[in-house]
Amino acid sequence: MSRHELAPSDPSITSVFVGWDRALGTYFAHIYCTGDDNPFDMPTLQIGDDFREVSNPHHAIGFVQDYAEVPAHLAATLTADAAHEGTCEAPAVLGILDAAQTPIDLDNVLCPF
């Protein structure tokens, strides 16, 4: 997993992160706003928290561009992160579970990553 912190462009923003999540096979973006009293330290705004949700780094960059200063080389950096880290094939396996005839209790399946 890669994670790059960007400089917020507004004092109402605490922090902004973008990166590549190998396990989910997606680019992601997290925006934390000042004064957000989320007890679980969850991002105020986010994308890329589902399997292969964001396949293009420009979508993650577009999501944060109004909240942070985006370096010109960020898309190339994120693309290199994804190429270097690759993807985990577990999402493909989980995707075919819907076709299984017998219900599978995912609470008792060991996670491969």
Score class of each variant (00 low, 15 high):
Leu110Tyr: 10
Arg22Ile: 09
Asp37Gly: 08
Arg52Ser: 05
Asn56Arg: 10
Cys33Leu: 13
Thr87Asn: 07
Ala7Pro: 02
Arg22Pro: 01
Phe17Pro: 03
Ala100Asn: 01
Ser2Lys: 10
Gln65Asn: 15
Val70Ile: 12
Cys111His: 15
Ala23Glu: 15
Pro57Gln: 09
Asp21Phe: 00
Cys88Glu: 11
Pro112Ser: 06
Phe28Gln: 05
Ala80Lys: 13
Asp50Ser: 12
Pro112Lys: 15
Leu74Glu: 04
Asp66Asn: 13
Gly62Cys: 07
Thr34Met: 15
Asp10Tyr: 02
Asn108Trp: 09
Gly48Arg: 08
Cys111Asn: 09
His84Asn: 11
Asp81Gly: 02
Ser2Val: 04
Thr34Pro: 07
Asp81Tyr: 01
Ala75Gln: 09
Val54Trp: 00
Ser12Asn: 14
Gly35Phe: 05
Leu45Met: 10
Asp66Ile: 03
Pro91Gly: 06
Leu97Pro: 01
Ala99Ile: 09
Gly25Arg: 01
Met42Phe: 02
Ala82Gln: 12
Asp107Leu: 13
Ala72Pro: 01
Pro43Trp: 10
Asp66Lys: 13
Leu78Cys: 05
Asp105Phe: 04
Asp37Phe: 12
Ala92Cys: 00
Ser12Glu: 13
His58Leu: 15
Val70Asp: 06
Val93Gly: 08
Phe51Gly: 00
Val16Glu: 00
Phe51Glu: 09
Thr79His: 07
Ala23Gln: 11
Asp50Val: 02
Asp36Met: 06
Arg22Leu: 10
Pro57Asp: 11
Glu5Thr: 13
Pro112Cys: 02
Ser2Tyr: 09
Asp37Gln: 14
Tyr27Arg: 04
Gly25Lys: 09
Asp21Ile: 04
Thr26Asn: 08
Met1Pro: 13
Glu85Trp: 14
Gln101Cys: 01
Ala100Pro: 00
Cys111Arg: 14
Ala23Gly: 11
Asp37Pro: 05
Ala83Thr: 13
Ser9Tyr: 00
Leu6Gln: 10
Phe17Ile: 02
Gln46Met: 14
Ala68Met: 06
Pro8Ala: 04
Leu6Met: 04
Gln46Ile: 07
His58Ile: 10
Pro112Trp: 10
Pro71Ser: 06
Leu94Ile: 07
Arg52Leu: 01
Ser15Met: 12
Ser9Thr: 08
Ser15Phe: 01
Gln46Ser: 12
Gln101Ile: 01
Met1Asn: 13
Phe113Thr: 13
Ile61Val: 07
Leu78Ala: 01
Ala100Lys: 02
Phe113Gln: 10
Ala75Pro: 03
His84Glu: 12
Thr26Met: 02
Tyr32Ile: 09
Asn108His: 10
Gly19Ile: 07
Ser9Arg: 14
Phe63Ile: 03
